[in-house]
Design a protein around this nucleic acid. Sequence first.
DNA 1: TGACATGATCGAAACGTTTAGATTAGCGTT
DNA 2: AACGCTAATCTAAACGTTTCGATCATGTCA
Lengths: 343, 343
Amino acid sequence: MLHVAEAARVSVATVSALINGTATVSPELSQRIEQAIRDIGYKRNAIARSLKMGTTRTIGLTVPHITNPFFTDVVSVIQQAFDRAGYAVMLCCTDEDLNTQDDQIRLLLDRMVDGLIVARVGDGAILKRIVDDAKVPVVLLDRVCEGVDTDTVVLDNQRAVFDAISYLIDLGHRRIGYISGSFDISPMHDRMTGYREALQAAGLPVENELVRFGNFHEVDGYNATMQLLSLHDRPSAIFSANNPMVIGTMKAIRDIGLSCPEDISVACFDDFPWSDVFQPQLTTVAQPVKAIGEQAANLLLDRLAGNRDAPPRKLALKGRLMIRNSCRPLGAPLGAIAQSVSA
Amino acid sequence: MLHVAEAARVSVATVSALINGTATVSPELSQRIEQAIRDIGYKRNAIARSLKMGTTRTIGLTVPHITNPFFTDVVSVIQQAFDRAGYAVMLCCTDEDLNTQDDQIRLLLDRMVDGLIVARVGDGAILKRIVDDAKVPVVLLDRVCEGVDTDTVVLDNQRAVFDAISYLIDLGHRRIGYISGSFDISPMHDRMTGYREALQAAGLPVENELVRFGNFHEVDGYNATMQLLSLHDRPSAIFSANNPMVIGTMKAIRDIGLSCPEDISVACFDDFPWSDVFQPQLTTVAQPVKAIGEQAANLLLDRLAGNRDAPPRKLALKGRLMIRNSCRPLGAPLGAIAQSVSA
DNA sequence: TGACATGATCGAAACGTTTAGATTAGCGTT
DNA sequence: AACGCTAATCTAAACGTTTCGATCATGTCA
């Protein structure tokens, strides 16, 4: 900018005024300055600007795994929203690890991001400290966190799983295996509650042997399913509370020589692009990914636009049960599956 | 830092020296400074540091669509690699649009990223200008670009498609439909060449009516497949040069009342996590995603470590044909598919 | 004892912006 | 002719670091 100013024989203040439109500058000088900018190929240094202005027009986004299709879509939507608003997005993947997440949020705050969207943070106390220390707005995604009072957008997980399990019960299933993710994040808590309540509402017992835990990965789903299938009285249906794990479930079913839905019904959380392309077409709980991402982005953009003091806003969106053909009515002949799908 | 210096009754220079270890500071002062840092909760401002140092420890990464499973994986691997190295990653999605990509690269350069990994840039001239203007190292991914001399990691696309098409020919297919992405990026060019050469090597004609173009999206694959299937003499196999488009292909086959592989064989580019879970299990060309991402990251990290003047390095990795059961031997009875899979 | 090397510490400039406040020029009023 | 008003422009101080060169005390050696 100094060089531009010299070349145009004006002060840097005038150059700045022209570039930012913060003051009127005469047509004559404007022209000289614009010419100089072109000649020199000047580009404003955003770092210096950030230092002075105290704002980077960059936000931080952390997700556990970008390869989980739910987060892939959420990241995509959020990235687009902020791109439109002229913000850059720094992406971090926490690998479901709390320490990693801590480090990464620190990394982002060091770089003075203007705001933070964090998905699936683990511990309330740590998060609270972060939110308080950082003077930037934070929106929580996919997880509520007691004691942390900030904008939040989550799914009504309990209700969603309740509906899914109730659907299985309606089909006649009585022993329904449930594969949960680790319990230290609220969605897994709520989903489990939904499972329990659906069973109880139908007067069915909640049996511990039918509940397994995994760490969100395919291999965990595989192992959990193997255990469920080798039970003395094995379940007739399995619900996986997380999408990557259901891949393991399907592989385990195949490896053990069973097939879905003939021998065992399967449903899971989170829809994915191929769900209605191949066989069996998985029955899933679809999250309104686009809405979730956009709401989160809007909440943060609103704060960034200056609305700092509004009370925390908590959004809970509804999931939708996508009924396909991976669950069969129990007791009914196999041919009845087609009808149950159109129901 | 100023406050820390005052609290510890030393100069800012000494604080800086201690933090960075750039000079020895006496145990006594060290202790006072560290105490002050704790008391105040001081965190070094990375923006001010970047301004002074001319380096942000941040890189820019642009991909067309993060929802394309190939790019999802690549982004994941690259993010991890840079995270390990203490770099932040700014992610941009270009939506296959050259102007968008241009804007985003500018956005990233404005923010003084230390390096750039760009996947699928369109035009050689524009890219060349960008690479030259930006004084930062650039790694090209998934695309070669004539006239732009910089580090590159790509797949041997031509060979990969050649192998896939040859496989179909070996199965007895003679009319093989081909769905390409837009032609303005080199992989699509090379893949098409692979298609052509495989046909020619087998003495088969290259028929224009069997070749369709789409813009990488599911809907494009759907439309292209509809056209192919309504040809007077319809193909017995379809190869899709891009992964999202193959979803459209499968849906079109279903909607038209045919089934795969009984009526029509299907193969495509890019593997995905569910490919061997559901039926039909798609035969795909798997890119070594992990290697591609890691190589790209390593090339850039090497440049960032100071190796600026080494000549441009061009890596071409090999794809792998994952033979499953979505392609059937032509003329053979249906039961023969199983054998062909194990072949 | 004086000169000098050594090691610790500091002062101040620089990185490239923004912006408050000062200065100047032009012009209409009285 | 003196005054005030407005619009255009400039000067200079910040933003929070790093770093060069200067300063100063201390100890060593001739």
